[in-house]
Amino acid sequence: MPAVRATDPEIWKMVAFVKTLGSAGLNEKASGNPVAGKAVYESKGACANCHSIRGQGGSMGPDLTDIGRRRGLKYLEESLVNPEAEVANRYRAIRVATTSGQTISGTRLNEDDVSIQLRDDKGNLRSFLKENVKEIRRDKPSLMPAYGTALGKKEIEDLLAYLSSLRGVE
């Protein structure tokens, strides 16, 4: 990142702006039941397969330990219902087909013109030279399922309430 020429007041304006990113509705109170939402998270949603809270869970998706402090209800709801709407580069899903016949799905960690690195769907770190890659598919940028149909309205409200309650390690 290049150095930014700015005065102290300008820098604090930037900080304030960055803190607002994705935080619309941050202080809104969720209507659902966070206890019931925790159950959805751990069972039907199977969220912990890919996400972690306080070190418990998978690493395929973003850590959610303090997600309620960083993201508002509107952003969280869209992430559940339409996860492809905004995917950070480090969590973009790809599928690599090698010349030897393997197909590996995962999230793209890094890439240049001669190689590509990913975390496969078992959490393993993998790297491939492109000369050994037949195809890289990027047409489904998120590995996360869209929960708009998999979960009921009440379950989504409860899950949102639970996620919103995650404020990190105090």
């Binding site: 700015a6 005065t7 007041p9 300008e10 304006k13 930037m14 304030a16 702006f17 960055v18 607002t20």
Partner: peptide
């Protein structure tokens, strides 16, 4: 901030 820096209207965010 005044227009003498980057055109004014603040930096970053809507209007920046």
């Amino acid at each position: 901030p005044r227009g003498a820096r980057g055109g004014g209207g603040g930096m970053f965010g809507p209007g920046g």
